[in-house]
Computed example of a mutant assay.
Amino acid sequence: MAPALLTGCGTSAPASDAAVRSIQRTLDARAAAVLAGDERGYLAAVAPGAERLRAEESRRFRGLARVPFGSWEYRLGAVDRRGDRAVAGAELRYRVSGYDKGPVTAARTLELVREGDRWYVTADRVAEGGAEQLWEQGEVTVVRGKRSLILGVGQEPARLEALAVTADRSVPAVTAAWPSRWAGRVVILVPSTLEDMGALLGAPASGYRGIAAVTTGETGGSGESPADRVIVNPAAYGVLGEFGKEVVLTHETTHVATRAHTSPATPMWLSEGYADWVAYRATDRTAPQTAPELRREVRRGALPAELPSDGDFAFGGTPQELARAYEGGWLACELIAEEWGERRLAEFYRVVGAGEHRGAAVEKAMSDILSTTPRAFTTRWRTYLAHRLGG
């Protein structure tokens, strides 16, 4: 939908090179002010007389002031100009110092006005289909763990500190299981409510009700890929006991560690199953304790015919269906670890992720690493389920 400032008579057109350069200078000065902690410089980009926006931007600046940014920049996209007004798409790119190898990227829509020879911001909002940033939801409290950085809004510091302690235990647990090099640290965001969690994900909050945490990031990550974030659902995470919290954060931290080797070729039974396998690896939980929903199905004679599909992991299904998908993936990875060894399991994960096409990648990895076929493995997995859960 076109912004109101572009309605009316006349035509809009791409901005001239001079206008684009001037707008970019305004945004560059704003970015420098963020890194310098200079609120006055940050607000200097706001159009004169735009008092409501100035108050909003002042709150936003205070929200992000404690976050240890290592970089912050705007990359302009298309700029549509009508006289002294313009609407621009921009990509905000930032890194948290000491944690991010690649930048987090956020799509923004900016409205601007020209006063004299300068362009000023009159609106700065999430682009359509984009996601909010944590500091847009309030002032960010920062807690530094030994291996974690916790950023929270509307949370008691003691709660964030306890989360950091749990996260600090999850990192070495993942490193002990995953043999490939990774950053060895994690950034965790804790919004105030489930609705705010949905806003951070750019998705309806209802889809995450009952989900304790999710990990965001780009699969097949390289040094320039968007950085991973673990986003905690404060309601669902808060009702867990200490064991449950540790399992959740170890699971999500595994996703951070394996991100560079996860690709569209990686089936969810493997990515989610491996994360659960790492989370439960050093615990004394039995298979019936860890896979109660799948055990019920097995004991009533409803042994699944196939490994869980990606669709089985959709948040829109019933909690029981979702639990069975995770449990099935976990037991598939446990089977590989027991029969072929933990290092073969990690190697299988990497080789699948290096493939281009799902079916061919899984088939090749099963042949090369496990000396089996998908059909034979599925048969073996079904037998394993019956053995582990049928008693």
Rank of each mutant, 00 (worst) to 15 (best):
L5K: 06
L6V: 11
T7I: 06
P14T: 04
A19M: 03
R25H: 08
A32F: 07
A33N: 05
A33M: 03
G41M: 09
Y42I: 06
A45H: 04
A55V: 08
R59Q: 10
R60M: 11
F61I: 03
W72T: 04
E73N: 12
L76W: 05
A78Q: 15
V87L: 10
L92S: 04
G98Q: 06
T105N: 11
T109V: 15
E115I: 15
D117M: 14
D117S: 15
R118T: 12
W119T: 08
E132Q: 05
Q133F: 03
G138T: 03
E139T: 14
R144N: 08
G154Q: 01
Q155F: 00
P157N: 02
A167R: 00
A173Y: 06
V187D: 01
L189W: 03
S192G: 12
A199E: 05
A199M: 06
L200F: 01
A205N: 04
G207C: 08
T215H: 03
G217S: 01
T219G: 13
S222Q: 07
A227K: 02
D228T: 11
R229Q: 01
V230A: 07
V232Q: 03
V232C: 05
P234Y: 01
V239W: 09
K245A: 12
L249A: 01
E252F: 05
T254D: 04
A257Q: 01
A260N: 00
P264D: 05
A265K: 00
G273W: 00
V278P: 00
A279M: 02
Y280H: 07
T290R: 10
G301R: 04
P304C: 08
E306Q: 15
E306P: 03
P308E: 10
T318W: 12
L322G: 10
G328A: 09
G329H: 07
G329V: 09
W330G: 02
A337N: 10
E338Y: 02
E342T: 13
R344E: 14
L345H: 05
A354F: 09
H357Q: 13
E363L: 09
E363H: 12
T378D: 11
T378V: 14
W381G: 11
L385D: 05
A386D: 14
A386I: 09
A386P: 07
H387Y: 15
